[in-house]
Design a protein around this nucleic acid. Structure first.
Lengths: 141, 141
DNA sequence: CTTGACCCTGTACCTGACTACAGGGTTTAT
DNA sequence: ATAAACCCTGTAGTCAGGTACAGGGTCAAG
C-alpha cells in the first residue's frame, strides 16, 4: 500500500506541514504509524480527511465541532443511539445554516433586482436577510 | 426617533460594548452621530445590522467579507453593473456553501442509516461528504 | 561520504476577532 | 452634590487557528 510522508501529504492536501502536526495535536488526525526512525507514514485517504476539515471550516464549523463530526465514525461498537443522536443534531445545525444562506441569497437577488429597477437603495435589501425570524419583507420597490 | 446608547444597543443585539466599538473601527458599523458630550447615538436598525454580521460569521464569512456584503447597498449612485457583479459573485459563493452543506448532510444521513444497518463503519461514510468532485459513493453497505 | 532536501520535537510568534482594563468625563437617582 | 452606572479613548491581553524557527536526526543522489 502506498504511504506518504508528511511533506507529500501536505502537498497533496494543499496545506502546511505544520498544520498537519497541529491537527494531530488537536486529535483531528489520528497518530499515524512511524518508520523506525520516527517518520510519520500516512495513507492516501488522509488527504480526504484533511479536505473534509478544510471544507467544513469554510462552512463555519470550528475545529472542535469538526472533531466531533469526524469522531462519529470511530468505535463501531459505540452506542448506536448516541451516534445517531449526535448525527441528527449535526444535521439540524446544517439545515439551519442552509436556511440562513438561502435567505442571504434571496436578499442578494433582491438587491440585484432593486439595482436594476433603480430603486432607492437607501433602504438596504441585504439587511432583510438573516433576520432571526422570517419576517415579511415583500417590498419589491 | 428613538436613539440608543452603545450599551443599550449592545444589550439588544446580544453583544459586548467593546465589540461594537471594534466593529466601528473595522468599518462594519458606520460612525454614528454623537451627543455634545461625545456619546454615540444609534438608531434601532443597528440591531439588525449586528444580527446580520453575527449570522454571517456563523456561516463562515470573515469580517472582511461581511464588510463587502454590507457595502453592496451603500452609494446608490455607484455603478450598477459593479454592484451586480459583486452580488452575483457573492451568490455563487453562497451556492457553493449550500452545495457542500448538502453533501455533508447526506453523508450524515448515510451514517445514521449505516449505523442502523450495523454496517462495518470502519469505512467512514462521513468522509464521503465534501469531496472536491462529487465522486460516486453509492455503497449503501 | 557528503550535501541538500527532507523529517523530528519543542517553543515562540502571527492574524483575526474579540475582551479587558486604565484613566478620565457624564448622567441619573437619591 | 455625590455615588453608581454610564460613556469616552487608548492600549494591552486572550483565544482559535495556524506558522515559523531552532536545534538536531535521516535519506537519496552523485
Amino acid at each position: 500500500m502506498e504511504v506518504l510522508t508528511i511533506g507529500q501529504l501536505a502537498r497533496r492536501a494543499g496545506v502546511n506541514v505544520e498544520t498537519l502536526r497541529y491537527y494531530e495535536r488537536r486529535d483531528l488526525l489520528p497518530d499515524p504509524p512511524r518508520t523506525s526512525s520516527g517518520y510519520r507514514q500516512y495513507t492516501p485517504d488522509a488527504v480526504r480527511r484533511i479536505g473534509f476539515i478544510k471544507r467544513a471550516q469554510q462552512l463555519g464549523f470550528t475545529l472542535h465541532e469538526i472533531g466531533e463530526l469526524l469522531a462519529l465514525r470511530v468505535d463501531p461498537d459505540a452506542n448506536c443511539d448516541a451516534v445517531e443522536e449526535r448525527a441528527e443534531h449535526a444535521i439540524e445545525r446544517i439545515d439551519a445554516k442552509v436556511a440562513e444562506l438561502a435567505r442571504m441569497r434571496s436578499a442578494l437577488g433582491e438587491l440585484v433586482t432593486a439595482c436594476h429597477a433603480r430603486c432607492p437603495t437607501d433602504d438596504c435589501p441585504i439587511l432583510d436577510a438573516l433576520e432571526p425570524e422570517d419576517i415579511d419583507h415583500a417590498t419589491p420597490c
